[in-house]
Design a protein around this nucleic acid. Structure first.
Lengths: 233, 233
DNA sequence: AGTTGACACGAACACTGTTCGTCCGTAGAA
DNA sequence: TTCTACGGACGAACAGTGTTCGTGTCAACT
């Protein structure tokens, strides 16, 4: 149940690699971490996170699953790599004190969209250890935005934590019900809520429409808006 | 990836069963849903959600895993039953317009504590279909609180959705890192953050302490506080 | 030439959820 | 009373999972 820690040396190696990350990729096509990650992301994109197995990735690379273990320690590390890779697609704005709220919602929205592009992968984000440099980059960017907006450091730090948890949970849930949710599914949920006995569920039955309202990501922006407005108080 | 829906008839049966739920349990001890659920919860409580397999539950009941399928459709349904069962332990206060904020935090705290009592089970909450009568009871109770506090219905509904997502994500994450988190683990995280290059992570390095501050559930209450204060604006 | 280390990968292991088929017991019908 | 049908119990087997172990190959180094 507990996460297994990487060693301090591995962490130091990751940091050192930061300075070398701009080198061009090797010319040959052996099995590499990069190919594994690219293949895995394509698989998740097309078939969802549950379809991501070592065997499926290996098959797509025309090899056996054992071959992957020369490059990734285990499945959890591959999951972590995927989260890191998609996190790199989030572009961080230069902090603008007058627009910190909009900037935060923008960054969270980008991350949300990355997660939704790979259905179910948010679950890996929830499981990921807190030492991934790519996700820490996003935290750093969010910190910069909030601090520039005058939010006290501790409030900023804690709010970022909450926002990231919310983004993951929201997108994971959205992936499960299908995003966008098929209209027939939603109609069914509505119908079922209306079947509830009023004696026990008076408010629910009275507000079925509100409980299920929201087009696109309105609920997402509403929730994050609450969080950020709370910061503003 | 998508959830499989139960039939409309099954839903109606669940509702009808609401009126019969107070009957005493049968005297005999055959394998029942109740025994399966109780056994499963005990297993999760002691060994975490990842240890929950049909085989493990069956073994604890001194039978084979196939026997469970006469009572639960599949593992996902068992997971859903577990979430429903623990949700029943959440007691809903009579709404008090003057204390709706504190009441909401109390209800969320209770749910949080139930989830933490069963490490990792929050993942099942994130996966659960939105038609579980026991979890809907909590939604109903929260709606009552917020509406009594004067929150508009749609805002109330959407805020509850966000709060529940946050509770699940928070507790799932907490389970993974161990709750309470061992001091040595946290010290290690701190040390690693301090190893980051200031050139790329200036704010993170400057605010390592704030990023990792918070005793007990301070961060939880802070985040929910933001959400609810945002509602108050 | 011989040695070493890294990569590749098949076979096998321990484990997962689930289905299928068979048996048994009970209740209801004839 | 006997027979039939149904529901529960559950072993065997299936398809699938992540991972380890052992072996072979190749390239670089001594």
């Amino acid at each position: 149940m507990k996460r297994k820690p990487s060693s301090r040396a591995e962490w130091a190696t990751q940091i050192a690699a930061l300075e070398q990350q701009d080198e061009p990729p090797a010319r040959k096509e052996p099995i590499t971490v990069g190919r594994i990650v690219t293949t895995a992301l394509r698989l998740v994109e097309t078939e969802g996170f549950d379809a991501l197995t070592m065997r499926r990735v290996a098959a797509a690379l025309e090899t056996g699953p054992a071959s992957l273990y020369a490059h990734v320690r285990n499945k959890a590390e591959l999951d972590d790599l995927l989260i890191g890779t998609l996190s790199r697609n989030v572009s961080l704005p230069a902090p603008d004190p007058a627009r910190w709220r909009a900037q935060m919602i923008d960054v969270c929205g980008q991350l949300r969209d990355e997660f939704l592009r790979y259905p179910g992968i948010a679950r890996a984000a929830l499981s990921a250890p807190p030492n991934n440099l790519d996700t820490l980059r996003i935290t750093e960017g969010m910190l910069a935005i909030l601090l520039a907006g005058g939010v006290p450091p501790r409030s900023a730090a804690w709010a970022i934590d909450a926002a990231l948890l919310y983004v993951s949970a929201y997108t994971y849930e959205a992936s499960l019900r299908g995003h966008p949710e098929p209209a027939a599914d939603r109609a069914e949920v509505l119908a079922r809520l209306r079947m509830l006995p009023v004696s026990r569920f008076p408010h629910t039955v009275a507000h079925v429409d509100e409980l299920n309202a929201g087009v696109g990501h309105e609920r997402f922006e509403f929730a994050l808006g609450l969080l950020l407005d709370g910061l503003n108080a």
